[in-house]
Design a protein around this nucleic acid. Structure first.
Lengths: 334, 334
DNA sequence: ACCCCGCATGTAATCCTTTACATCACAGAA
DNA sequence: TTCTGTGATGTAAAGGATTACATGCGGGGT
């Protein structure tokens, strides 16, 4: 058994209150006593039991984070932002990824419920009502990249519509008239918003509005790769493609390579997210930069404000911007 | 304030003991009482305070995980494995990534100390002694990809030496005689082991043992990209390269592309890790498969065994195997 | 008719820390 | 000398859940 504060008190021949005072606030305690206590604690290898502390303080300084199991790099970036901010204010992250089923996610949230001071959920197909009766009113929640309806939860999302619009606009400026879309599935919030940006740009620039140009993907690399087959079978063949995220765009580049084709000559490609890998493929990927790390940082900032009762739930949007590289036909930016 | 077990007991007109019994073991309790309690709990939106539970049970069912801030995809894979196993046995992950400084890591471990049942550290430059007096004896620890010396901590690592050997061997079989090495830095355990595998193969196959063929990298994509410059300035120029991880290998592919060169014709490239992206670049990357997710799963399994006192610290190695794709000059496996 | 046993439930100790309040000793003032 | 104020330290009550042990009630055996 680990040493308790009582053991330290005994060893230093003082009461537990004095030990606690020395170890925390260093209230007025006589210098000699202080030294005695510190010595005793060290010699016993004493570490305060955080659980008891948490129980007493009625806060855990822990934040629950729920992530979907896709999005390798995307996920890593967001987590980094979360962790940075959390640590800066002495909080810890309890992460849970790889939940696919709704009931599984439900179980995870349930099990997190009594242990965390707040919750950050990245869960693109979330329905609000569902959360409403799962989470107690007293628990602050920040939702990332999801529908911003309810007044109860804070939300934070990328400017998906404008980003997608800019991507398609750029392809139109390159002279493309048949621009395909690779979606991220009908359920996903980001995917729906990006599709609406695509459609708006198609309409505004008078591009070919053929519904068969909208191909269904699921945000995985593999679905991007598989889409190449479909694209080649379209007549007339599209000359450009907007993929709703970078993973799929990279899959498309791979698919093209396997078919002996190449971007941008055979198909101009633009992605969304600007994951680090977008730099490093050949040709490098033109994409819409989404500030993933900033998303994490802002989310944590806001959550901690909510926890400390310094704020009430709001709804923010993070701006995106197009990054021109090779896959659209530009020469890369410096 | 959230409802407590006492509130539920009052509402259901029973004692806290009965409530606890109903909510947990469902000991022998009269059916009618049970229903009454459940109803009361539901109507109050009661969730047990996990902190109190943890204090009483003397365990938190939480595991601390410390990761370096590099290795985007690598990290994600390992975490996935950890999470899977943890959740399967009702445990939670407290992760901390992006620690770079040693004292920062120290602080993180300190702050984790009273809150977790065990620790999993992925920390390639770790020195054992350092941990020895930081972590109390009673806390189980699993070290990943690090030096396997002490008897106190469990360790788990890839078979780096054999994997690297197989990679260089394969390049030799392709007929290459000047095979360069891109290292992961002198401090890093994985990097050192992989270098020793490279050297062994170079010796066994009578390849050019020129020390200037060993280039220093740091496991980042950028260092791979930068290495291309150096490789081109070597005389005679190496015809093949073994990069100590996939991130750097991908950087090399990118660097080649920028220089108007291409693998495998201008330089055959083999990596290490087999991150998912290795499939998806063009040309696809021949690499040594390291079972990252399995590493995570095994680590968690072992840690939980240690926590439950079902085991004593051991030292395991996970086998690696070469995956032939395009960047070495092979045609890809089916 | 009496006793005992078992089932359903209650009482209270315990986990470890923090902290409001109590106490004690001593110095300086009257 | 006695009283008071102050600084250092101790005592004990939370905080919320689990659980060993205690209690009380009713039915079955003799």
């Amino acid at each position: 058994m680990d040493a308790t504060i009582q053991d330290v008190a005994d060893r230093a021949d003082v009461s537990v209150a004095t030990v606690s005072r020395v170890l925390n606030g260093s209230d007025r305690v006589r210098e000699a006593t202080k030294e005695e206590v510190v010595k005793a604690a060290r010699s016993l290898g004493y570490h305060p039991n955080e659980t008891a502390r948490n129980l007493r303080a009625q806060e855990t300084r822990m934040v629950g984070v729920l992530l979907p199991n896709m999005h390798g790099e995307f996920f890593a970036q967001v987590t980094r932002g979360l962790d940075r901010k959390a640590r800066a204010s002495g909080h810890h992250l309890m992460v849970s990824n790889s939940h696919t089923q709704e009931d599984e996610a439900k179980a995870v949230i349930q099990s997190l419920l009594g242990r965390v001071d707040g919750l950050i959920l990245l869960w693109p197909r979330l329905s609000h009502d569902f959360l409403d009766d799962l989470v107690p009113d007293s628990l602050p929640v920040v939702l990332l990249n999801t529908d911003r309806s309810g007044p109860r939860f804070e939300t934070l999302a990328f400017d998906n519509h404008d980003g997608a619009y800019a991507a398609v606009e750029h392809l139109a400026e390159h002279g493309h008239e048949r621009v395909a879309l690779l979606t991220g599935g009908p359920q996903n919030y980001d995917a729906r918003e990006r599709r609406s940006g695509y459609r708006a740009a198609v309409a505004d620039y008078g591009l070919d509005a053929d519904p068969s140009l909208e191909l269904e993907g699921d945000f995985t690399r593999e679905s991007g790769r598989a889409a190449v087959e479909q694209i080649r079978s379209l007549t007339p063949r599209p000359t450009a493609l907007f993929a709703s995220n970078d993973s799929m765009a990279l899959g498309v580049l791979r698919g093209l390579h396997e078919a002996g084709l190449e971007a941008p000559d055979d198909l101009a490609v633009v992605g969304f997210d600007d994951i680090p890998m977008a730099h490093y493929v050949a040709p490098s990927l033109t994409t819409v930069h989404a500030p993933m790390q900033e998303l994490g940082e802002r989310a944590m900032e806001r959550l901690l404000a909510l926890v400390q009762d310094d704020a009430s739930p709001a709804h923010q949007t993070l701006h995106t911007r197009l990054v021109r590289r090779e896959s659209c036909g530009c020469s890369p930016e410096p």
